[in-house]
């Protein structure tokens, strides 16, 4: 990239960054303010954070959020990878391939609220038929896996496309059986794609509110649902502390993952 940018490019760029960060900064400042009502500065305190850590419902919601993201990512990564390999490495009839492609793209091009609603209906029908599928942690994990599979499959598929098939053919020519081919050739080559897909799935799960909100039960509150509920009830200083902690956790997660990917490249 050549030279310095003119001011009519840098100013909107700075405005965009301000739009992203000023609100979070305001929350962070308020979260260490000693004043309980109103935002006039009454001195620095960490009391709200201390109180947060003593709140059982918050800790439970945090635990639920982590369990939900981890469990759904683990399942979706396996299923999404299998789908990507199955779809792109075998000679399917054309109609079946088209149907699979369409299904995988569906979650990408429809607003998430539609899936949430469709799953509410489906779980309702399944509940009426079988008596299980009460709204709770299980339904939430199922819902998350469903939209994560598609994203993992798309990421792994694009990785498979860049690998190409020459390596596979070479391995076969050297008498590799299917097991060896998978373990020693394909999996190591696919790993960056699988890791990227898993990271995407994990962040999508942490990012999600709408699907969790619709498919959650009374005992499976996650952090976003907790914050949403308390915003509607009237905000307490603890919520500012909680929001700030979530934001800081995201910062650490992003920087950590970025560190990992640069290390992996070297």
């Amino acid at each position: 990239m050549s030279g310095r940018l003119p001011r009519w490019v840098t100013l909107p760029a700075m405005a965009a960054l301000a739009l992203l960060y000023v609100p979070m900064l305001a929350v962070a400042v308020v979260s260490v303010n000693a004043s309980r009502h109103g935002f006039a500065w009454r001195g620095f305190t960490l009391a709200w954070y201390a109180r947060l850590l003593g709140d059982r419902s918050v800790l439970e919601a945090a635990w639920n959020t982590v369990v939900l993201a981890t469990a759904s990512t683990a399942v979706a990564t396996v299923l999404g990878t299998a789908l990507a390999v199955g779809m792109s490495r075998y000679p399917w009839p054309r109609w079946l391939r088209a149907a699979l492609d369409f299904t995988v793209y569906l979650p990408v091009v429809t607003p998430d609220i539609i899936f949430a609603v469709a799953l509410v209906i489906a779980f309702g029908i399944l509940r009426a038929v079988s008596g299980v599928f009460n709204m709770g942690m299980t339904t939430m994990i199922i819902a998350h896996i469903t939209f994560q599979i598609a994203f993992v499959a798309l990421v792994v598929q694009s990785r498979l496309a860049t690998i190409g098939r020459a390596v596979e053919e070479a391995a076969r020519d050297l008498y590799a059986d299917s097991g060896t081919l998978l373990r020693r050739v394909m999996l190591p080559l696919m790993m960056p794609g699988i890791a990227a897909g898993a990271m995407l799935a994990f962040t999508l799960s942490l990012d999600d509110f709408v699907i969790s909100f619709f498919t959650a039960g009374p005992e499976s509150t996650t952090l976003p649902i907790l914050i949403y509920a308390s915003v509607r009830r009237g905000v307490t200083p603890e919520i500012h502390a909680l929001s700030t902690l979530i934001f800081l956790a995201t910062v650490l997660l992003v920087l950590g993952l970025e560190r990992l990917t640069t290390l992996a490249k070297e």
């Binding site: 990012d207 976003p224 914050i227 949403y228 915003v231 995201t250």
Partner: peptide, 9 residues
């Protein structure tokens, strides 16, 4: 990557 509810709040 920050949750939408947190950012909207």
């Amino acid at each position: 990557c920050t949750n939408l509810v947190v950012r909207t709040y």
